[in-house]
């Protein structure tokens, strides 16, 4: 084999690892330092605090609620988007008239920045001026305006719905990539042998889709867990913190109340939680792959 920079993997990976490492590790060290320090209102360090900041985070009455909702939020959107994207990808993988257009439409939510999507929905969900209410009224679904964002029982499901809608394009793209890697003859052979479409899906498609499903679960969990704009732009976690998830809680603690020590501690805890969850999932997925 000829020697070249191309055959030395260390040289190949060095720039990428340096760039990512610099941007991730340096700030992480900073945050760790803040988390164990006494910090004034403006993030200036004023001595060692031990675990005080962590205790303050956990004893905050809003913390447990935010944890629980983060769990619901993440699971609902990750599962929901997979449940929506799988059939969409299966349909888009078939050959039909206007498939190109259908694919473009399915990708559209992606073309709008998340912040803007959230702003549009905030406007559309407005109780009196919002166009969702006027549309539903015109269709005869409702008689009186629903104040969507007034209480968490309507606001939170709406936010989850928006979350699924914006997560769908990415998930569908991943799945489409997976589906196109499955040779057509495999499906055809199975069909010739008399397998029903459901059987083909369960016995052939799904197992082959496993790695792509895993990518979707891991990536979406990370993104959704950390997703900020949808909730912030529609309700800011209100009313009465009833739509707060950890990220919006973090933002309030850090930047509105100026408790940067608590915020740094919370950041680390969130990071740790995500790390543990993802590693467990990756382990499980790998074990399944091997068996």
């Amino acid at each position: 084999m000829k020697r070249s920079a191309l055959t030395n993997p260390y040289i190949l990976i060095l720039p990428g690892v340096l760039l990512a490492g610099f941007i991730v590790i340096w700030p992480l060290v900073q945050i760790t330092e803040i988390a164990v320090s006494e910090v004034n209102r403006f993030g200036q360090l004023r001595g060692f605090a031990g675990l005080e900041n962590f205790v303050a985070v956990v004893t905050d009455p809003a913390f447990l609620g935010a944890c629980w909702r983060t769990f619901i939020w993440t699971v609902a959107i990750v599962v929901g988007s997979i449940a929506v994207s799988m059939p969409v990808a299966l349909i888009l993988n078939e050959d039909f008239h206007g498939r190109g257009i259908a694919r473009i439409i399915m990708m559209l939510p992606w073309a709008v920045s998340l912040t803007m999507t959230a702003i549009i929905w905030r406007w559309a969900l407005n109780g009196e001026s919002g166009m969702l209410n006027s549309a539903l009224k015109a269709l005869g679904v409702i008689d009186t305006n629903i104040q969507w964002l007034a209480q968490s029982s309507t606001a939170f499901p709406m936010q989850i719905m928006i979350g699924i809608l914006v997560t769908m394009p990415f998930t569908t793209t991943i799945f489409l990539g997976g589906l196109s890697s499955i040779p057509d003859d495999l499906n055809e052979a199975a069909q010739l042998e008399g397998a029903s479409p459901w059987q083909v899906f369960r016995e052939i498609t799904l197992p082959l889709m496993r790695p792509f499903l895993n990518i979707a679960v891991v990536m979406n969990t990370i993104y959704v867990f950390n997703s900020f704009p949808i909730i912030w732009a529609t309700t800011q976690g209100g009313p009465a913190n009833s739509t707060d998830i950890l990220v919006t809680h973090l933002y309030k603690v850090g930047f509105r109340f100026g408790k940067l020590g608590d915020a740094a501690a919370l950041s680390l805890m969130m990071f740790a939680a995500l790390l543990v969850l993802t590693l467990i999932y990756v382990r499980l997925a790998m074990r399944e792959d091997k068996s």
Binding site: G127, N145, Q147, L149, A155, P239
Partner: peptide, 8 residues
């Protein structure tokens, strides 16, 4: 008041 005050 207007309905749904907590969304205003």
């Amino acid at each position: 008041t207007q309905p749904g005050v907590t969304s205003y």
